[in-house]
Every structure is written in C-alpha cells, then in structure tokens.
Nucleic acid binder design. Structure first.
Lengths: 103, 103
DNA sequence: TAACTATACTACTTTTTTGTAAGTTATTGC
DNA sequence: GCAATAACTTACAAAAAAGTAGTATAGTTA
C-alpha cells in the first residue's frame, strides 16, 4: 500500500483495473485453459495484449502458467488462490453489467 | 451492449474501470458531498481529472450534480440509484484490497 | 525439405489517459 | 478598486495503454 494507493479500493483497481485483466480472470473461473483457447474466448484482444496481460497477471500472482515442453508449444493458465479470491468480485461485476444493460 | 462489450463484465469495466471513477463513487457512498470536500478526499487527483471524472459519471447517470446559484459557487454531488446499485461491488473491491495487501 | 503448428517476442505507431499550469467567473468584504 | 472565494475551463505536454505487423522456435507430418 504505497502513496499511490491511499485507499484499499485504489490498490485493487491498480491490480486489476485494466481493460483485459478482469476478463481473462473471469474466463479462468471456469477452469484451467490452454493459451489459445483462452485467447479465443476474447476475440477482441490482440495477440500482444493477451501475452502482455497474462504476464502481468502471472507477475502479480493472480494466475499461474504451466508450460509443457512439447512442439508445438502447449501452455496452460489457471487461477492461483489469490486469483480465486477475486471470484465473488468478478461475478458481481459481470452480474451488475448484465442487469444494468437491460435498463 | 455493443460489440466492444461481448461480456457483461466488460460492459461494467468500460463504465467504471478507470483510475478515479470507483474512488469517487466510493466516497459518495457515505453521503452527498460538496465538490471541494469530495476532491480533498482524493488528494492525488488533479483538478482537471476530478472535473472530468465527475462529468463522466454524471453523463452515465451514476452520480447527480446539484448546482446552487451562489457566489462563490456551490456544487453538490450525490449517487443516483444506478450509482447506489454499485455499493456492494465498491465495498467488495475495497475490502479485497484491504485483505490482500496484508499478505 | 518444406509447410505446419501454438506460443511468444519485438519494433514501431497510434490512441487514450493523465498531468501541469494558467485563466475565467461574479459576488463579497476590506 | 482589489483581493479572496469555489468551481470550472482551456491549451498544451507527458505518459501509459493498445494496436499492427513481422519474426522466432523446433519438432511433426506430408
């Protein structure tokens, strides 16, 4: 909690408050996914942003990355416990959007 | 829900997923506030970003703005019902940050 | 041997967000 | 007349986020 995060809410937003992070975490709630599958669940994301975002999430310990030493490459992503602890929030955000956009 | 929001979660993030919006909404949970007071609760925000953000929130119907025709000006902000419906989410995000940053 | 595969990286450009600093307003009180 | 006030605006600059397009990898399969 540094000076840029005077409020816990701000801390949370700095961690997951970007365009793609919540979306990736959300899709991983349903279980572990191969890189390509996960990316296809978010058709709008560019290859670069996908890689960059999962790297960020991994760095922050919200997801973990398992590499299988095969060719062609196989990489699987899954939520860490820290990532899983966001489940309620992610589902709430999704639910709110669903309800709100019907009005 | 347009093509940029294939997922409700994305819709929500596009609405409040910025640096300052959740923070402003959060502080208004405690009740209506004069512009200056609200801004002082977020010392890191610049004058410009504050005005810009409350304008956005007003445009999206999450807060309402009451102007008193006095000099010097007096402006009060409050949450709309739509804004209030975010209460659980905002408190969850704050709570998560509080718990998480202790680890 | 050449194409194919899934994943990722890089250089570069564009777009979006944020910040800085200065000005504007119209009344009050000195 | 002139400074002080609260809220806001504007022009400009800087920084961050996102997009585009091309390259690398190294076994497998045709």
């Amino acid at each position: 909690m540094n000076k840029k995060n005077s409020c816990p809410l701000n801390y949370t937003m700095n961690l997951i408050g970007t365009k793609w992070k919540p979306l990736i975490l959300f899709h991983l709630l349903e279980g572990d996914l191969r890189s390509g599958i996960l990316q296809k669940k978010i058709p709008e994301i560019s290859n670069k942003m996908f890689t960059q975002t999962v790297r960020d999430l991994e760095k922050d310990g919200l997801i973990s990355r398992k590499v299988f030493p095969v060719v062609p490459p196989k990489v699987e992503y899954s939520l860490t416990n820290r990532g899983k602890s966001l489940e309620d929030i992610l589902r709430s955000l999704d639910k709110w959007g669903l309800e709100d956009c019907q009005n």
